[in-house]
Amino acid sequence: MDRLFDKVIVRPPGESYKNCVSTNPQHSTIDVKLAQKQHKEYVKVLKENGISVVELEPLETHPDSVFVQDTSVIGASSGVAVIARFGEPSRRGEEKSIEKLLLDNGVEINRIQAPGTLEGGDVLVTDQGVVFVGESQRTNKRGIEQFARYFSHVEVVRVPVTKVFHLLSAVSYLGNKTIAISPHIIDVGYFKGFKLITIPEEELYANNMLYLGNKMVLIPAGYSKTEEKLKKEGFKPITLDVSEFWKGDGGVTCLNSPFYKSL
């Protein structure tokens, strides 16, 4: 299996999710019940594709905590994890229960220290010995330098991100040295040596996609051009309605924190 992970952590949205940090004009229309239903469907897809899912309880004190990817970057082979220091101050504290879970499972913990910031949504892990980390509104240079020290066995490449919150909003790794990218958002020059699939400009949201291995790619429903493009490249897209997470500025990668096999 060519996927990057066999196990993930997820956390369903709590009632407080409607108060999450979001720039989406439809933020106020978030339907929490529908979000919870969509999250269940998401977990079902992961399990159907042979991924082991650790399901945590909702964290009502942190409305954004469904976006569990941002809390940590976990290495399955090294047994080492980096715990985020959020660039978005209102989210600080979300990472504590993840840290406890990892400690209870014997994972070695490293924390990003102030003034460094790093969020998991800026970390693009590949199986090619290289990890790309976005320098963004949420992740700074000091955070990236610390991350590179903690995962010193891989090459860490810093990528400037100015037009979206996180690198993974515009770049996804699809196994086999292949990357989906939105060139109007991220400079393709950083990804030399990789095969690039360009995602149509008007379907940027679809570039937040999750590779499940065996050519299966989970993408948000409603992006037919991206779906067709992936099919032409030999991938098998699985579409899922994630409208309520779109309203919260999140996507399909944001909803899980993987145990990366190549880290």
Rank of each mutant, 00 (worst) to 15 (best):
I9V: 08
R11E: 00
P12V: 05
P13R: 02
G14E: 02
G14P: 01
G14L: 00
E15M: 08
E15T: 04
E15W: 06
S16P: 02
Y17F: 15
K18S: 10
K18I: 06
N19T: 03
N19V: 03
C20F: 03
V21F: 12
S22Q: 03
S22Y: 03
T23K: 12
N24C: 07
N24P: 04
N24R: 03
P25C: 09
Q26A: 10
Q26C: 09
H27T: 04
H27D: 03
S28Q: 11
T29W: 10
T29C: 09
T29L: 14
I30N: 02
D31Y: 04
D31K: 02
K33S: 13
A35Y: 00
A35H: 00
Q36Y: 05
K37Y: 11
K37G: 03
Q38P: 01
K40D: 15
K40F: 11
E41H: 08
E41S: 14
E41N: 14
V43Q: 04
K44M: 12
K44L: 13
K44C: 11
K44A: 12
V45H: 08
V45N: 08
V45K: 12
V45I: 14
L46M: 09
L46T: 07
K47D: 09
K47N: 10
E48L: 09
I51P: 07
S52C: 13
V53A: 10
V53H: 10
V53Q: 09
V54W: 11
V54I: 14
E55R: 13
L56P: 11
E57A: 13
E57Y: 10
L59H: 07
L59K: 03
T61R: 15
T61L: 12
P63C: 05
P63E: 09
D64H: 11
V66R: 01
F67K: 07
F67H: 13
V68A: 06
Q69K: 12
Q69C: 14
Q69A: 15
T71K: 02
S72M: 10
V73Y: 03
G75A: 06
A76G: 10
S77I: 09
S77F: 07
S78I: 06
G79S: 09
V80L: 10
V80E: 14
A81L: 06
I83W: 05
I83Q: 05
A84E: 05
A84D: 06
A84W: 02
F86D: 07
E88H: 12
P89I: 14
S90G: 14
R91D: 11
R92E: 15
R92D: 14
R92V: 15
G93N: 14
G93A: 12
E94G: 11
E95I: 05
E95P: 06
E95W: 08
K96Q: 15
I98D: 03
I98R: 03
E99P: 06
E99A: 12
E99L: 09
E99H: 07
K100P: 04
L101R: 01
L101A: 02
L102I: 06
L103N: 13
L103I: 09
D104G: 10
D104S: 14
G106E: 04
V107I: 15
I109F: 01
I109P: 00
I109C: 01
N110T: 04
N110E: 11
R111I: 01
